[in-house]
Computed example of a mutant assay.
Amino acid sequence: MWYRSEITKKLGVQYPIIQAGMAGGVTTPELVAAVSNSGALGTLGAGYMTPETMQQAIKQIKQLTDQPFAVNLFIPEIPNVDTEAINQANEWLRPYREALQLTKPEVKQPSSSNYEKQLEILLQEGVPICSFTFGVPDKETIQKLKQHHLLLIGTATTVQEAMINEVNGMDMVVMQGSEAGGHRGTFLGEFEDAMIGTMALVPQAVDQVSIPVIAAGGIMDGRGILAALTLGAQAVQMGTAFLTCLESGAKKQHKEAILHTTEEQPVITSAFSGKPARGIKNQFITEMAAYEKDLPSYPIQNALTKEIRREAANQNRPEWMHLWSGQGPRLSRQQAAGEMISKWILQIDERIK
């Protein structure tokens, strides 16, 4: 059968479909479990979670499914706190805070302590699979996780990044094309130099690395899945496609924006987090565009806008929210995750016949 591969065997799943570990509350335990119960691989996006919240979510997932699932973590980035840049950014953000009746947040020096505690929770809870974004774990961490029999999935946006994942000992790698929504996993060189489309990126990576390749970026239905497999990928990772499903924890305004936008509206912006990400163009992106090159680095800018984004959702101001989306929004649907997966499998079967 078309869906049997080295990856499905290693992951212990029926279908070569991975739900992306979208951080920020989208990947509820209900979504992760629904995907895994449907024969694909659900992923908890734990990048922004505290270790305690992450552990609680893992326990909930275990109650909802006995199938394999994954947890996605962010490799920590620790820039120096630039007080002058923060003060300037706060001045640019002041009109939004005033309109939403917010005060300036306290900015703390980023550290790796949260990430290190998250790794310990993975081992305590016996999580079977872990994926990483924004870099590759050091070899010592990889060795420790593998001693506890975790399967490790890396993320890359260039062939060279894929090769680094392989050399460091990752078991498989997600090749994330420029069509992808939200933050991409670029960690080597400039983001602009890694804007390679999925269709060009995947076969080149397949030819250069021996670990299994997972295709991501702009894949929204059975046609995209089959195309990726034809290019040599052994599985796909899908984010935006799951963001609008019933079990998703995305804000209502976010779902509605994706369901009612068109392919040219998702643009690249650093305004929300200090790191380039693809989201639906709105007032905040447009007004902050002039300042992007002078904003504090991620994750500091992300911390500065956190309450603005949250309160904008609470006050129904989608024009100031981060509305992450890939380039295929016209293909988005609002239905149960299991129904979507079944539909995609049927689409592939029909095309193969």
Results as ranks from 00 to 15, higher is better:
G21P: 10
K59P: 00
L145G: 12
V267Q: 04
E106R: 14
E98F: 02
A85M: 01
T27P: 05
T244C: 05
A289P: 13
A180I: 09
S131M: 03
D349C: 10
Q118D: 08
S5M: 07
A162N: 10
L31F: 04
V159R: 09
A162D: 06
V202Q: 09
E263V: 04
M54E: 13
P68Q: 00
A46Y: 10
K293A: 14
H183N: 09
P76E: 05
I219W: 01
Q347N: 03
P110N: 00
A271K: 04
L41P: 15
T28W: 07
S273C: 11
V209K: 08
M195H: 03
E287I: 05
V206G: 08
K108M: 07
I129V: 14
P318K: 07
L231S: 08
A89V: 03
L122P: 12
Q315S: 08
T27L: 05
S36V: 06
I258F: 01
V202T: 12
E319R: 02
I86T: 01
N72W: 08
V107M: 05
N114G: 01
V202R: 00
G45Q: 10
P68W: 06
P266M: 09
G182Y: 11
C130D: 04
R317S: 02
R4K: 14
S111D: 13
F187C: 09
G189F: 12
A228S: 14
P79F: 02
F132W: 15
G39S: 08
I61L: 12
N87Q: 15
G126R: 05
T133Q: 01
V71N: 07
Q124V: 12
I348Y: 03
E161Y: 05
M199Q: 07
A241N: 11
V107R: 04
A70V: 14
L151S: 01
L323K: 08
S36I: 04
I258Y: 01
T261N: 02
M220R: 03
G39Q: 04
Q265W: 11
S111I: 10
S210P: 00
I196P: 00
M199P: 00
P16H: 02
Q109P: 11
Q334W: 10
S38Y: 07
I18V: 14
R351E: 15
I280E: 02
Q143N: 14
N168Q: 14
T103C: 13
R309I: 06
R94K: 12
T262S: 12
R184C: 13
L346C: 02
Q60D: 06
L226N: 10
I219A: 01
L145H: 06
V173R: 04
V213L: 12
G21T: 08
K59C: 09
A337N: 02
K139D: 13
K293C: 07
P16Y: 09
G232T: 02
T8G: 10
L11F: 13
P95M: 05
A205M: 10
N37C: 15
Q208V: 08
P79Y: 03
M195G: 01
L123R: 03
S332N: 13
Q315F: 09
K353S: 15
